[in-house]
């Protein structure tokens, strides 16, 4: 965004510190976040809001009467269940708080799944219907749009690709890490993802291991033999789309586990559990 010269705003520290997936069930926290997002919308006066499943921003857009689209994948569509029958707690726990806030704003309440908030606007899937089919009991009544792939396809060096990227799966290069990958022939990149995680930007490279907050896949992608990543939606999709094999370490996160297992079913990844 900065490279494009577009204006940007950053959330204040108290809002950055809120863990949305744990805090939206507290009506006071949610209301404070909605008020912040409403103020942002009044400052910016957009004709449309694109959001990444941010519940208070969706409520703010509803309150301000602004059209919105939410970037989604299958598990963010109402009714999706990892096990086929149970609505994940992520989407049931905040319902009471959401409905309290909606009542204060004189907006119709939602049913027993917070994802119905996203369904009040467009649900945009940043992928193709072939790669990411959306199925579920309510799909026919929802406004779901596949955008197509968002990244240009990198030219690959195919069998000559020798490098390895760790995307948010290692925060530093410790002795165990260095010993395990000492025999890797190509370059090794570590993307910590956040400056607060492990290595600070500018940490000295350790041999062929290079550490950064993020690495540009347009630049290093063609040389990658594989990626070790955490199963996030965008990373999983991009590896599949560009033919980069992956080892997926989803930890305890069900969304990332499901993404990794989809790549595994396509024959493009191996999922390893903790």
């Amino acid at each position: 965004v900065q490279a494009a010269g577009w204006p940007s705003k950053t959330y204040p520290p108290w809002a950055e510190a809120v863990d949305p997936w744990l805090s939206w069930s507290d009506p006071d926290v949610l209301m404070r976040a909605v008020e912040l997002d409403r103020q942002t919308l009044r400052d910016v006066a957009p004709s449309m809001v694109i959001n990444d499943c941010r519940i208070p921003m969706v409520i703010a857009a509803l309150a301000e009467g602004i059209q919105f689209a939410t970037i989604c994948q299958d598990n963010q569509v109402p009714g999706y269940c990892y096990d086929g029958s149970t609505i994940p707690a992520t989407w049931t726990l905040p319902v009471d708080a959401i409905n309290k806030v909606l009542a204060l704003l004189e907006i119709d309440p939602i049913a027993d799944d917070a994802r119905w908030l996203f369904a009040r606007g467009t649900m945009a899937v940043p992928s193709t219907a072939e790669l990411e089919p959306i199925v579920g009991p309510y799909v026919e009544e929802l406004d779901i749009v596949h955008t197509g792939l968002l990244n240009k396809q990198a030219s690959t060096s195919g069998s000559r690709a020798a490098d390895l990227l760790f995307y948010r799966t290692a925060g530093s290069a410790d002795e165990e890490f260095l010993a395990a990958f000492a025999d890797w022939n190509g370059s090794i990149y570590i993307a910590t993802g956040e400056t607060m995680v492990g290595a600070a930007p500018g940490e000295p490279s350790r041999g062929r291991v290079q550490i950064g907050t993020l690495w540009d896949l347009d630049a290093i992608g063609p040389g990658l033999r594989a990626v070790v990543h955490h199963g996030g939606h965008g990373t999983t999709l991009r590896c599949i789309a560009e033919g980069i094999p992956a080892v997926v370490l989803p930890g305890p996160n069900p969304e990332r586990t499901a993404n990794g297992e989809r790549a595994e079913r396509l024959g493009r990844a191996i999922v390893m559990h903790a």
């Binding site: 690959t156 799966t169 395990a180 990958f181 992956a246 930890g251 305890p252």
Partner: peptide, 27 residues
């Protein structure tokens, strides 16, 4: 989704290294 990284909640790096040898070729 929830922004929790897996650092500290993962297999041993030596097991990850071994898994890399079983991946399909780069397309």
């Amino acid at each position: 989704g929830p922004a929790v990284d897996v650092t500290g909640d993962r297999p041993a790096w030596s097991d990850v290294r071994a898994a890399l040898d079983h991946l399909p070729p780069r397309l």
